[in-house]
Computed example of a mutant assay.
Amino acid sequence: MEEQYSLCCYSEIRPDQIGLGFHIEHIENKSQKPERTFDYDNLAASALDSETDLHAFKGRASEVFGGHALGKSDSVDIKRFVSCHQPDCSRFFAYLSDGRIVPADRLSAEDEDRALYTIGSLNLNSPFLQNLRQQWWDELQELFDAHINQEMSLHHLASIDLVPRGKQLSPFFSLTRNFFGEIAEDVLKHDFDELN
């Protein structure tokens, strides 16, 4: 959790802020590669505690996401799957104001396929996640507009959600980075180079 700044490895929600838990996720499924079951490089913290949270989604299987999504519980094509441990994984995805995650612009055909495959396998556009991301985007937009109107610093605004407080980040780090664009890159370069 500390290594991930309290964010889910796939959705980037902060489960602790919305009453959900975590489980230990095997990036490459145990059933596919049993020898990687205890390989630290194959583990991550993913939202939705197996014992309690899945009951909250009972009857709403289409909203289950991340490591418990139907597409991830089946065997995944690890050559197509964009791993959260891949250093440049964020380059595959972009975020829209309606809360959807899509393949980033200017990807090769192969990388676009990988992005689409990963989004689908993890159900990253589940209605639950899409709604949370849209709310986050709307909040950022409202604050951004207020800062423009009152001639306040956009760099300071961006740093609120891009720079960790202690060992925790605000939810949706990548969406926030996407939203602020060059401002975000400047903030990260100057204030928190570890996340670059």
Rank of each mutant, 00 (worst) to 15 (best):
L96A: 11
L129W: 09
R133Y: 05
Y95C: 00
E139G: 14
N123H: 08
F128M: 07
L132F: 08
E112F: 01
A104L: 01
W137Q: 06
A104G: 04
T118L: 00
L96E: 10
T118F: 04
N125D: 10
V102H: 00
L124D: 05
A115L: 07
P103C: 03
I119C: 06
R100I: 00
Q130D: 04
N131D: 15
L143I: 11
Q141T: 13
P127T: 09
L107K: 01
I101Y: 02
L143A: 13
Q130I: 07
L129P: 08
A94L: 00
Q135R: 13
G120S: 15
Q130S: 13
W136H: 14
D111H: 07
I119K: 06
Q134Y: 10
S97N: 13
R100M: 02
Q141S: 15
L96W: 07
F128A: 07
E142N: 15
P127S: 12
I101M: 08
A94F: 01
F128T: 05
T118P: 03
E110S: 12
Q141C: 13
R133G: 02
G120V: 03
S108D: 08
L122D: 05
T118R: 01
G120C: 12
Q141K: 14
S108E: 03
Q135V: 12
A104H: 09
L143T: 13
S121E: 13
R100H: 10
L124Q: 07
S121P: 12
D138K: 14
A115E: 02
A104W: 03
G99R: 03
Y95W: 08
S121F: 03
L129H: 06
N125G: 02
A109G: 05
A104K: 03
A104F: 03
Q135T: 13
R106T: 12
L107C: 04
S121T: 15
D111R: 09
L116A: 04
L107M: 04
D111V: 00
L124I: 06
A104R: 10
P127M: 07
I101V: 09
A104V: 01
L132Y: 10
N123S: 08
W137E: 04
D138N: 14
Q134G: 09
V102M: 01
R133I: 08
T118D: 07
N131M: 15
D111E: 12
L140V: 08
R100G: 00
P127H: 07
R114W: 02
E142S: 15
D138M: 14
S97R: 11
V102W: 00
D138G: 10
S108N: 05
L116M: 11
F128S: 06
L122Y: 08
I119Q: 04
A109R: 05
I119H: 04
G99H: 02
